[in-house]
């Protein structure tokens, strides 16, 4: 795909998405120069295909979560990180990624939290649906249980989080460290958009989790469908997380508000229809939509084949 034409195709792609559900986040209009620069950034080194990683193992005994010490939750240490986009560094930046009228990028100091290494899978969500008799989602694992779950709404994602938290708290089998966290004021929920962005780009101001150039060998985008979670290796990605770019858009627990981001700010206009932020882009997006700073938003009831989620453990 011609990267320049990909960049130009964005408004069209967004228009199509708008016809399905309301994506407000990409209201910014790209200038020709931005598109040209964006094209230059989007050259993928086709020869540097990373070796396929060993497929992640999931344990049916543990709600099909990853067979790891913390069931796939990765610690993100406390500390500041740059949030938002600086168009001088990232020419593909949209207007809604600008921090404020006077600043292009902000710095957010986040306390420690944990985030799932992988997007929530179909198998994991099916276990929840069966156990909780949850019937609001139509789901099949015909495509493969380790693909990311999609077609789930924001409310479905939170229902899953509540269920898993209750399971982990009450189960003797749950790792003691996790149980200890969850019984001492930490919550299993969706990450807010700052947590998501820090987990995706680390403390550097990376455009993509692996660096500043789009790479087809690092993320599933511009494709026909999802791939199993963790099936694309990304050794450069911070914190060893998978699929932070592409595969499926990921719901966050942040209402869609203009920057600067403030985790305490819930001053949404309650008279306006709800919109919640999603991050990371999906398999059917082009490279500028899978950047770490891109802010998507959708109706909380939207159940679309390109929207999924991953969980986080955060202190209340």
């Amino acid at each position: 795909m011609n990267p320049l034409s990909s960049a130009r195709a964005l408004p069209v792609a967004l228009a199509c998405m708008n016809s399905v559900f309301r994506i407000k986040a990409f209201a910014a209009v790209l200038t020709t120069s931005v598109m040209l620069l964006g094209g230059a950034h989007a050259q993928a080194p086709s020869s540097s295909v990373a070796a396929a990683p060993p497929s992640p193992a999931f344990d049916a005994q543990f709600w099909h979560l990853p067979d790891e010490t913390l069931l796939g939750f990765v610690e993100i240490p406390a500390g500041p990180f740059p949030m938002g986009s600086n168009p001088l560094i990232d020419p593909m930046a949209f207007e809604n990624e600008r921090w404020s009228e006077t600043r292009r990028q902000g710095t957010v100091d986040l306390p420690q939290f944990y985030i799932a290494r992988y997007e929530t899978t179909i198998e994991q969500f099916l276990a929840f649906m069966e156990d909780a008799n949850y019937r609001l989602v139509e789901l099949s694992n015909a495509a493969g249980g380790n693909h990311p779950v999609s077609g789930v709404s924001w409310t479905d994602a939170l229902a899953y989080a509540r269920w898993l938290e209750a399971e982990l708290k009450s189960s003797e089998q749950a790792p003691p460290e996790l149980r200890s966290l969850l019984t001492s004021g930490w919550r299993l929920t969706l990450p807010n958009e700052a947590q998501w962005e820090k987990a995706a780009r680390g403390t550097e101001s990376r455009i993509y989790p692996w660096g500043n150039m789009a790479r087809k060998d690092r993320a599933n985008f511009g494709a026909a469908g999802t791939v199993p979670v963790g099936s694309i290796a990304c050794p450069e990605c911070p914190y060893g997380l998978s699929d932070m770019s592409g595969n499926v858009w990921e719901w966050t627990r942040s209402p869609y508000l203009p920057y600067p981001f403030d985790p305490e700010n819930v001053a949404v206009n309650l008279q306006e229809d709800a919109l919640w932020v999603m991050r990371g882009g999906s398999f059917n997006d082009v490279e500028n939509n899978i950047r770490t700073a891109v802010r998507g938003a959708a109706d909380p009831g939207a159940r679309r084949p390109f929207i999924g989620f991953r969980l986080a453990i955060v202190r209340e």
Partner: peptide, 13 residues
């Protein structure tokens, strides 16, 4: 919340 009533979403959290 699914009916886009924002207070419902915040209450869900």
């Amino acid at each position: 919340c699914e009916l886009r009533f924002q207070a419902g979403c915040l209450n869900l959290l």
